[in-house]
Nucleic acid binder design. Structure first.
Lengths: 221, 221, 221, 221
DNA sequence: AATGAATGAGGATTCATTCAT
DNA sequence: GATGAATGAATCCTCATTCAT
């Protein structure tokens, strides 16, 4: 059996095991057995548990970003692009729950190296969403000078909301990708429109900032 | 040294260690050393690693919910309540990054028992936000019959977005709690207002160009 | 509460715990709790787990030998003395199963020091039984020159059989002390009579010694 | 080195360690070292301390029963069979003192699971002895209707006596297997003959002087 | 006379990882 | 290309034992 195939089998087994057990609780024994090979072979092909996990993260990150990009076809108007990108996102995370768990739960929980891998993928998606928001503003002939940093924050929020929804959908049975996407569009799009039109929600000048909590404090670090 | 004090020291050390290393990678040795006690004492007071972790979750969950409740003062209008609740939330998660990591990253990643503990806290917060949204609708004399189930979904999305933002703010330097809260209010509040007024974003039938429509159309969910 | 009383309570608890859990599995914590005192007090009165166990052995050994001696009244004929001694023995072991377990199971299983304590008690009883057998021979006007070493061997066997029966009776419900004593008298007394009368069972000259087992051998040590 | 061989080495080491230190006091470290392997290998092959101990019990029980069966050749008369079986028994227990300690001392002292394993072996031997006693009765043309339950009780006593003697012989230097066997035959065989002939020892009614009586009287049991 | 507080030492068990073949 | 055999290094947990009060 050619090496490339064997390697994919191992990654399949690893993603499944890491996704379900968690990085630390997953044992190389279990992964090797699930892959149907002996442990030394896993080490021969993938070096170490860390490298194996990194390989999983990379493969799954690539698969996810490609799914999203493939979903959002650039010839559509911005809102439709966002809609179909989100649908692709929720579809993919629902179809590959272990991969999603690896990316969103495990990789961020077990060391900065892994978290960095995911952060790179995430940055790519945030940038993509940022472009979509700006495009939407242009299409609606709204103020094109809206500060880009603010838009990035909104994109962050939107992506974060999508991630949360994906987790929630995976944990709840009977929620389709379209439903998740619709919920998020409903929640976010009109607000974005208002924002683009210059209608902000303004925080109170002050006095409402919650006081410093008395009692135990831990330094902000 | 009296038992209660020692216990808090242990919990402090445990939250910090669990938050930084992760549940599995944290060793009882390390926790005991950080707490300045011997390992047997940790076991004497807190029984097992699982129990210790559960105790951490409970303490941090309670601290967080109390911070949020204390922030949102009920005499204010709903949007201001939400604003100050969010500010309190982001302040707390920024001040207690390890506690937040325990709640949001670790507890959800290592076993259903732990996840359940956090889910209970989360449900409480979602319910609170749901009340705020309904109150806001009433204050604005909007349709008070808006289906509560839908509102809960929106509250879920809002809480999810807040959680993501908290993670992001903790990972990014220079983001204040007020900024996070403002971003989220901007992102969500206008949209919620539109939704309350019946203006949905409708998904394309399948190939249709969507747009914001006046009047109530059949929501996807 | 006077020290002597407290000490007996501790020994009660210790005998019970040692008898049921075994020497090693019994924890000083459990013993102290069962005795209703704090652990340091146990150490204050009884020094160490080893000393505590030794104290248990001594107390139970003394109680058992005294019960047997009290049962066998010297004015009776030898067989009646043996009968009543055995009855007392089985009665006592049935009434104090934990004490018996300490003496017969635990003490012999956990180190030569403890085994020695029991061996002393046992030797006393074997000597007593030896006297009874010799007295019986005299009473029946049989050969008084029967070699004493041989008689000791018989006494050993009788005591050993009694011990086995006591274990078996404690493990089996519904066996009374009288029944056990009768079984043993039946089993042994007639044979002893025959022996005393010079009727031995003679082993074959040779040729029946079982061969050296082939295969795994472990040195006799 | 092939697995089967290593396993036997481990069992050898384990029997020796368990036999000398006791089940609880024996450490897996010590066993592994004595076997000349690392601890993980012991766990890989034998799973746990409990399983290892059970494996020891089974191996030693089988070895002992096979030694006894091989010793007692069925073509001989019953008394000679018993004699050679006993000789084989005492020879085996003397050659494998640790194995015997495991079976007779340790297994019965540390949990019902282990005790059960030994009980099965013991039952097999008791049944074998029962057959021999019945055969002896037949050979001597004695009452073949002697109640089998009573015979089983006698077999129990005989086996118990043999076990005690084996312990005693192992603890006392200079006692040969033939001597032990002879002592036991002398002790038991004539008495059995008398019993078979209906001569019981009757317990005093209560205060009566007892004696050996001809004819069958109601046995206590 | 009695105890709450505390620990050094050790034991069972698991796991990532590597040879020799 | 592939594996059976093997282990160093931790990790969780327990227990006998001791102070300071």
């Amino acid at each position: 059996m050619p090496r490339a195939v064997r390697e994919q089998q191992m990654l399949d087994a690893a993603v499944r095991t890491f996704g379900q057990r968690g990085y630390m609780a997953a044992s190389m024994d279990e992964i090797a057995e699930l892959a149907g090979v002996s442990k030394p072979l896993v080490y021969l092909y993938l070096n170490s548990k860390e490298d194996l996990f990194t390989a999983c993260i990379r493969r799954e990150a690539r698969a996810l970003t490609e799914a999203v990009r493939a979903g959002a076809r650039p010839e559509l108007p911005a809102d439709r692009q966002l809609w179909s990108g989100l649908t692709a996102f929720f579809t993919h995370t629902a179809r590959h729950p272990d991969g999603w768990a690896v990316l969103h739960l495990q990789a961020r929980t077990h060391g900065e190296v892994f978290a960095g891998e995911v952060a790179a993928m995430r940055a790519e998606i945030v940038a993509f969403v940022t472009q979509l928001i700006l495009a939407a503003a242009r299409e609606a002939h709204r103020d094109p000078d809206f500060p880009e940093r603010e838009v990035s924050g909104l994109a962050e929020a939107l992506v974060g909301a999508a991630e949360s929804l994906a987790d929630w959908a995976n944990a709840t049975s009977g929620v389709t990708a379209r439903q998740s996407a619709a919920t998020l569009m409903n929640f976010a799009w009109a607000g974005l429109g208002d924002l683009m039109a210059g209608r902000h929600w303004s925080p109170p000048e002050d006095g409402d900032a919650p006081g410093v909590q008395a009692g135990r404090t831990s330094p902000v670090r």
